[in-house]
Design a binder for these strands. Structure first.
Lengths: 207, 207
DNA sequence: GTGTGACGCGAGCATTTACTCGCATACAAT
DNA sequence: ATTGTATGCGAGTAAATGCTCGCGTCACAC
């Protein structure tokens, strides 16, 4: 289900059921157009066409074009963020190295499930559009990892948890995204093994 | 100095000195506009304005808008590629771990020198524009590293040089780019140490 | 049932876009 | 000087864009 839209993004709040369906159709159409035609070709008229509504109706609820596309990305991103958080939380009770492996498995699963969204964000949109929320998510996870490393610092060879977290998060994120998007000739299990090796080796001796 | 433009990109070959200067001004203006106004606002009229020439003059040598911006990126990318190749070649005679460190130092230097170009490619352009040559460069370096790993395989713990190269190249590239662009609160030397640690630890025991 | 406001429509506006074309000028060879 | 051509100009075009506005319609409270 859709995350509640920030009312700031809406021109007026839809009251009747009909109009809420309208907003829904607009966002869905925006998604379709964005995926099918790319960012540059995603015009308001095209979105209206795709949604089988009038151009004017777009502006009943959205202040401008950017708000429509932002709503699409927001909704997508919220779902992604939710999935990722859930998957990671699920694995949190695993101990030590198997936590690492389980997390990577989960991350790859979530990325694979949202591959069209990934491609949209990474390849189609200019970074400035998606950068804000992506950066925020990165930060949240960085903080989490920093905390974890701080607690288990004694069992590792690292000195600065924040630095190590920064590096680990970017590394794993980017490698995984590239792996999913590029589909290189590396089996999934092999790839995970490599990332686990990389992480364990970097963190140093564990029990 | 400018790399020679692929004649395919030009509508006709400029013969007189005057016209060669014209092409130069167009590309320079394109660069300015792209950096100052972003990709979406980079219109032909704006480029013409910035270059203090007529819109019509653009189309004397460039078939369309895309070709102009492509020329800007190409020229930028060529210089970047040249610098990087030179810096890495310079370090190639260093032995073992100090080769790794020296390469990273060189990479960071080159990235820092071309930081505006970096920001342009990573944050402003949609990936599809820059993806082709960036992918090619990645591939070239991947091949190089694969060869190196194959030769020195005995001294490492890796099993598949191609896979390890794929991971190493993406990892180092992305971490470095992010470091330069994001300017996190990590001292340069510390950051390099971390990347070296990562690499050495990943490759396993060395002599 | 009826009135009132929420809703949706779609023609159309003003602006911007990429690009052209006829014409003037600068240049090089004779 | 004359001529042929390479060069540059800039008004202009057709298309597309984001967005508005007046009007008809529909649902819901009473």
């Amino acid at each position: 289900m859709a995350q509640p839209l920030r009312t700031k993004d809406l021109r007026k709040t839809p009251r009747q059921e009909r109009s809420r369906a309208m907003v829904e159709r607009i966002i869905a159409a925006g998604q379709t157009v964005l995926l099918r035609d790319g960012y540059e070709k995603a015009s308001t008229n095209r979105v209206a066409d795709e949604a089988d509504i009038s151009p004017g109706s777009l502006y009943q609820y959205f202040p401008d074009k950017e708000a429509i596309l932002a709503a699409v990305i927001d909704r997508y991103a919220a779902e992604f963020s939710t999935q990722l958080t859930a998957v990671l939380a699920d694995r949190l009770d695993e101990p030590g190295p198997s936590l690492v492996r389980a997390s990577f498995e989960g991350l790859l699963d979530v990325l694979n499930e949202n591959i069209e969204f990934l491609r949209l964000v990474v390849e189609v949109l200019p970074r400035s559009q998606s950068g804000s929320w992506a950066g925020a998510l990165e930060q949240r996870i960085s903080d989490l990892v920093t905390a974890y490393l701080s607690i288990n610092k004694a069992q590792t060879s690292i000195t600065d948890p924040a630095t190590s977290a920064w590096i680990l998060v970017r590394m794993v994120e980017h490698l995984s995204v590239q792996y999913v998007l590029e589909q290189p000739a590396i089996p999934r299990e092999k790839f995970i093994d490599e990332m686990v090796d990389l992480t364990i080796a970097y963190l140093g001796p564990t029990t």
